[in-house]
Nucleic acid binder design. Structure first.
Length: 312
RNA sequence: GCCUUGGUAGCUCAGUCGGUAGAGCAGUAGACUGAAAAUCUACGUGUCGGUGGUUCGAUUCCGCCCCAAGGCA
């Protein structure tokens, strides 16, 4: 008995994932499951390049606008939500298509991360974050981890505050080191065909620049201003998104807008690079050259063979 | 036309009292198990504007030329 088939489109920002997703959805009666850590937030439309109302009217999109901007979210939550969405789509005889650039989320689905069942503790995180404010504090945290969980301390760099904190968090919450958590073999309930969207670096970067300029013209500053106006904290997870965190000081500190714009472009480039690193590591990814005129057709043909089970 | 100050890594610049050079930013590669658009790690050779000269040796000193900025006419 074969597993249900799921399509996925991963790749760097601004490389054309959404358009490809729409094309595949139209060809196969598919529905899109958002795989993006920022598009889950409501009222963050421009900066996240969220699918438009027209696109969403044409093809159902899942897991978009499922959180308020002041709420937290996590991979574990995503894995749960995505599985529910996929089951729902499959149950109606449609094809689920994951579209997005969050590598960690994809990995949680394909490699089935066993996330330990230890949810985060916001207050504890705040405390650890404050303590990690200077070099001495970071050293102290790492030393503490060394005594309670030497295995994790060994592989975590002192400056990697997010991970050192998480390891300490798990220990403080459960009394067990994170490195000792059970990680049984995982067998994904789905069979995936993963497309990776690729472009020559220079072309990708100029697309990113153009997209950022368009976002600014479309009113990204007003979007950020509105979020701040409704009381969303600059420390909120949602406000760490690229395009948001850079614009906050324009309003809170009268920083020049042009600096924010160039920072957004630079951070988007770096982000695209990190995304590429993530997806390149997965050798199941079927790369597509997005500069080719016929990519959509190529992808449709490959997906067709996959869905019909005729792929060898 | 003359004077002055510059011309060194993609950019901004430092430096070599003559022994072929280094920071920041940009960039590149990588990691990633409940923050992931987050967090972190590693990586610095370039006709030192061109050309002659002095010298064992010149990016460094001298001459000339080119370019840029400013000033004087």
């Amino acid at each position: 008995m074969s597993k249900p088939k799921v399509l996925a489109i991963a790749g760097p920002t601004a490389s054309g994932k959404s358009e490809l997703g729409m094309a595949l959805a139209e060809s196969f009666g598919g529905e899109i499951v958002c795989m993006d850590s920022m598009q889950i937030y409501r009222r963050m439309d421009i900066g996240t390049a969220k699918p438009t109302a027209a696109e969403r009217a044409k093809i159902p999109h899942h897991l978009v606008d499922i959180r308020e901007p002041d709420q937290a979210y996590s991979v574990a939550q995503y894995a749960e939500d995505a599985k529910a969405a996929i089951s729902n789509i499959l149950a109606r005889g449609r094809v689920p298509i994951l579209v997005g650039g969050t590598g960690f989320y994809l990995r949680a689905l394909t490699h089935g991360l066993h996330l330990g069942g230890v949810p985060s503790d916001p207050k504890l995180r705040e405390r650890l974050k404050d303590e990690a404010g200077d070099a001495a504090g970071r050293k102290r945290l790492h030393e503490r981890l060394q005594t309670v969980d030497p295995v994790s301390a060994e592989r975590l760099h002192i400056n990697d505050v997010a991970r050192v904190s998480r390891a300490l968090e798990v220990y403080e919450l459960t009394g067990n080191p994170i490195s000792a958590l059970e990680q049984p073999a995982y067998d994904s309930p789905y069979e995936f065909l993963i497309f990776g969207t690729e472009l020559e670096r220079a072309a990708l970067y100029s697309r990113i620049d153009a997209r950022v300029d368009r976002m600014m013209a479309d009113g990204l500053p007003d979007e950020v201003k509105a979020l701040l106006g409704e009381g969303i904290s600059p420390r909120a997870q949602a406000m760490q998104g690229i395009g948001y965190k850079e614009l906050v000081p324009v309003f809170s500190n009268h920083d020049p807008l042009e600096h924010a714009v160039s920072d957004i472009k630079r951070n988007s480039r770096r982000y695209a690079k990190r995304q590429l690193t993530w997806f390149r590591r997965d050798n199941a990814v079927h790369w597509l050259d997005m500069a080719e005129k016929t990519v959509h057709t190529q992808a449709v043909n490959i997906a067709k063979a996959f869905l019909e089970g005729t792929n060898a």
